[in-house]
Design a protein around this nucleic acid. Structure first.
Lengths: 365, 365
DNA sequence: ATGAAAGCGCTAACAT
DNA sequence: ATGTTAGCGCTTTCAT
């Protein structure tokens, strides 16, 4: 295995003390140009790489940020890593990962592991269920932590997307196109965002002066397959909806499959709009009108808040709670082009209300 | 900040020595049931969490695996993290990330950072360009390392996909359907896999007894936009191809866009097959026939090799070089259904040659 | 401008 | 069965 050169060896070869080597490496006090050059030369010759675990032990700073997520499926995973990497270029942070598997037990385990690695801070996408114990521990230990995606505890900085206005805008948009029977394929009841999105759906109906028909709200359980069967079932009823809103990206897949299998054309037979953009949304036929989460922005802000909190010795400032507006991406699946090409998306309404930004994509030729 | 209980404090409160505490924590030597219970009780009361940076300093094992990738775009990123996490559940490994941004300079920087964090091993997706310096350092320092995706240096364990037979099978499949003018949208010349896939394309033509027309091989530079324009340009020529093979997932997006913008229908106007599966390939219309990389399998094997190498003190065993066969996923974009529903995909040929596994997806209703 | 030395929190001989 | 103690490779006072 590696035998790694130590600082002591460098010191010996350069004929100086370890403290001098330490100071040239960290540029932490003045060293004669000549001595410094000598040390630097030895460092280069020997390929000396400072041992960060040793320095971490002394300084009790690892410059490690722990990321806890239902990792492999979580849309914030990659953007968060990216944001940390970007910040890290300058400040020396790196990320360590832990998959919570969206279960409280694993989440606790993951957090413990990260704490035992003495990470400087944590970005956590809270799992469903009762996570109180885990979060209490973090508060008690005063570990700088920012919650992302789901808003579950005001003792922490939290960053995520604004759900209510975004969802309302989607519904209002469909209503403006003349739809009155608008279905919602919603997510798991245990997820806080689900309730918000349902509230947004109801708000949208209300604003459009449309009655709420509970039968049009079906649970897709946040995943493709349940969404597919829920919608399929709904479409078999009489008084079937003429438009459907999907509650997240996975369920959108299910929605599209359901329609495909019934040979229903979008938007002619049924209009479709969705919460969350899909990576390849541009090449679907027809291209989907969605409200996208500004994931990169959210991730960047989360890391920014975290770094700020890690930097301040006084952990005094009260927690921020930041909700970025959803981004209305207007494409064709809503059926605007069919009805009235000049109709401006009702997204503008939401934009005025500050819950949404509008972003009209130029239709492909 | 955290004031973290130390082992010494636990020892004091339990009325034992630190070594006893250490041994109950690590289960590394026998401790009287009674004493152990007492220690465990104190640990629970105080919320003591062993300091892994301290123990790492002593044992010179961090149980950290460094992942170096052109991170955010790399398809192995998530599977590798997942595989490490899975292995980690049992053996205590976690992953630290470093984005190489696909540039040699950043790659070197990333590797240095990870080495200075004293990771136990490295999973590295080599960037393009001259990476010799970085790899030399790894050999010299004897850092357990496995290369993934691209085969560039025999001094390391390497895991990836078999490109030549996979690509050949795609071409042969199209040829078997009667196509004689088959285009290839290939990737960046600097990437080793590009050459292999071109070789596979040529092999496929040869086996099918088709002439090679160099004009049908255009460079999509491994990305969507260049692929789109390259194909668009090609389609404007006379003697345009009747079928096209996309060289990777990103370029597939470009290919589809190009066809869409020209209102060409797949597979009626032109047949399309692609290297790499897309996450949402099932909901594209028509669904794409592809050769998928068994990414999870590759990642798992990479981590397995790495852990094995980290475990053996003697770094003696010669490096493995493992190429998993691509997985032929037969869907509709190749146009089989149009020609002859009973035609078996020529994939079987490739399968016999051992470069490919076939996996016929049941068509959606 | 540089050095000596005391830890950081743990592990692992080596005692007893 | 348990305790003592010498480090692991650094940072950082405190001297000089």
């Amino acid at each position: 295995m590696r035998s790694a050169v130590t600082m002591a060896e460098v010191a010996a070869r350069a004929g100086v003390s370890v403290s001098t080597v330490s100071h040239v490496v960290n540029e932490t006090r003045h060293v004669n140009a000549e001595t410094r050059e000598r040390v630097l030369k030895v460092i280069k010759e020997t390929g000396y790489l400072p041992n960060r675990v040793a320095s971490s032990l002394v300084t009790s700073e690892t410059h490690l940020i722990g990321i806890v997520m239902s990792a492999l499926t979580n849309r914030f995973f990659v953007p968060v890593v990216a944001a940390i990497d970007r910040a890290g270029r300058r400040r020396g942070y790196s990320s360590v990962l832990a998959d919570s598997r969206d279960r409280v037990a694993s989440e606790a385990e993951a957090v413990s592991m990260l704490l035992s690695r003495r990470v400087d801070g944590l970005v956590l996408a809270p799992s469903g269920g009762d996570r109180r114990a885990v979060l209490d521990k973090l508060v008690e230990e005063q570990v700088p932590t920012v919650l992302i995606d789901r808003f579950v505890d005001e003792r922490f900085d939290q960053v995520g997307v604004e759900n209510i206005e975004s969802m309302a805008a989607l519904v209002e948009h469909l209503a403006a196109l003349g739809h009155s029977r608008i279905a919602l394929v919603s997510g798991l009841r245990s997820i806080p965002t689900t309730a918000e999105r349902i509230a947004g759906y109801e708000l949208g109906l209300k604003r459009a002066g449309l009655p709420l028909d509970r039968r049009l709200v079906v649970s897709g359980r946040s995943a493709a397959d349940p969404a597919e069967s829920a919608l399929t079932k709904l479409l078999r009823c009489k008084d079937a909806p003429t438009a459907v809103v999907s509650g997240n990206n996975y369920m959108t897949i299910g929605v599209l499959r359901a329609l495909q299998k019934r040979s229903m054309r979008v938007p002619d037979d049924i209009a479709v709009v969705a919460y969350d953009d899909l990576e390849f949304a541009d090449v679907f036929e027809p291209r989907l009108t969605v409200v996208a989460q500004p994931v990169a922005q959210i991730a960047t802000k989360a890391v920014e808040l975290l770094i700020r909190r890690m930097a301040s010795k006084e952990n005094t400032s009260s927690p921020s709670c930041i909700r970025f507006p959803g981004v209305f991406v207007h494409r064709e699946s809503c059926g605007c082009a069919l009805r009235d090409a000049s109709l401006s998306p009702s997204a503008a309404v939401g934009a005025k209300r500050g819950g949404l930004r509008s972003h009209s994509v130029v239709p492909a030729v």
